[in-house]
Amino acid sequence: MNDSNDANSIDSGFSSAFNLLISRLIVYPIKSCAGVAVQQAVLTETGLAFDRAWMVVDAQGNFLTQRDLPRMALITPKLGHEEMALRAPGMLTLQIALFRAEQPVQVNIWGAAFKAFDMGPLAAQWFSDFLGVTARLVRFDPEQTRASSMDWTDGVEALNQFSDGYPLLLLSEASLDGLNTKRKAAGLTSADMLRFRPNIVIADAPNQRPDLAMTAHDEDRLAQLMVLTAEGKVILKPVKPCPRCPIPNIDPISAEIDTTVGDMLQSYRQDARLGGAVSFGMNLIVLQGWEQTLKVGQPVHGNYQFD
């Protein structure tokens, strides 16, 4: 992959852009475990650095998920320079080396087999004890190629590690506000952004024209996003609405289940593009800007696409 896009053609697509900023960046080092809010993150070929680089598997190598084990939400990583510290209620802190792995193994994710590296018996015991099932921690093998579905990327090869299918997930503050307005009207408490596990959250910039202010689910209609970084420009393309499983029903703080979140989305977010499945947020691919650094507060310019 390379940054082969023609800069002039990209720039011209933003002639009627509206002005946004990155309001949050969140990395999920271990698939289905808690996220880490960061102020900056390097954008790699597979998404934000360290995002879904690790995964928890069972004895047969099949990936484990909050869908079946809500307690995974309580496993909280903290990224350091050389190690990742894992904490969970009632457990001693587990230190995981960022750049070291154990023996090669084969794992299964969504019916496909991939090579990975086992992180050793100490990590396996820690996860097994906390989750109450036989579990092991594995790291993605960077020599592997795991591509997003080209049915949605228009033929662009977009790589990811252990994410569900795409390098990045985008959500807007306006969309969460829209959901919580409906929840408040129904006498329900607000839902937290962390329930929806986005990587990049966008909001209106202070200089946004009032008539161009984002409304709920405007990210559904974005053709491209251009992020202005210290190194240059990052070009991101929304490609697929994010179909929602039961994970947003799981409180990321307590791991308790509240089905009213999914029920509310079901009432107004059935998406014809997904055959009627509920969607909330957009999956992104990277067209330009690998190895640049995204930061909270960076300007973002976007343009709408119209059918």
Rank of each mutant, 00 (worst) to 15 (best):
L212I: 01
P210Y: 02
I202E: 07
A205C: 05
M226W: 06
I200E: 10
I235K: 08
N180G: 07
P167F: 06
I235A: 13
K233N: 10
S172W: 01
T215H: 04
D220P: 02
T215N: 13
D211H: 05
E173C: 14
S175F: 01
L194E: 13
Q224S: 12
D192Q: 11
S190N: 15
A216K: 08
E219N: 02
L179N: 15
K240A: 12
D220C: 00
Q224F: 12
K233E: 11
I200H: 13
E173R: 14
L188K: 08
R221V: 04
Q208H: 07
Y166K: 02
A185C: 12
I200G: 11
K237M: 15
F196N: 12
L212M: 08
D177P: 08
E219F: 00
G187S: 05
P206Q: 13
T181E: 11
L188S: 03
S172G: 09
D211T: 03
L170F: 04
A174W: 00
L169P: 03
E173M: 12
P198R: 10
E231A: 15
S172L: 01
Q224G: 09
D218L: 04
R209K: 05
A216F: 03
N180R: 06
P198Y: 10
A213S: 14
F196E: 13
T181Y: 04
D204S: 11
L176C: 14
Y166V: 00
R195Q: 12
S172N: 04
S190K: 15
K240I: 00
L236H: 10
T215E: 13
K182H: 12
L170P: 07
N207M: 05
M214C: 01
L179K: 06
A223T: 04
K182I: 12
A191V: 01
T229R: 07
E219Q: 03
V234W: 04
T181D: 09
L225P: 00
P198Q: 15
R183W: 06
D220G: 03
P210V: 02
R221L: 06
E231K: 06
L212W: 04
A216W: 05
Q208R: 05
I202G: 08
L170I: 02
P167L: 08
N207K: 06
K233R: 11
P238Y: 06
A185L: 15
V234Y: 09
L176Y: 15
T229F: 00
A205Q: 06
K237T: 14
L171C: 07
L169D: 11
S190G: 03
Q208P: 01
D211S: 09
M226G: 09
R209S: 11
M214L: 13
L169S: 14
L212S: 08
A186Y: 06
L168C: 05
L171K: 03
M193D: 10
E173T: 15
R221Q: 14
E231S: 14
L168H: 06
I200N: 10
L179V: 07
S175L: 02
T189Q: 13
T215S: 08
I202C: 09
L225N: 05
K182C: 07
R209D: 14
N207D: 15
D211E: 12
T189F: 03
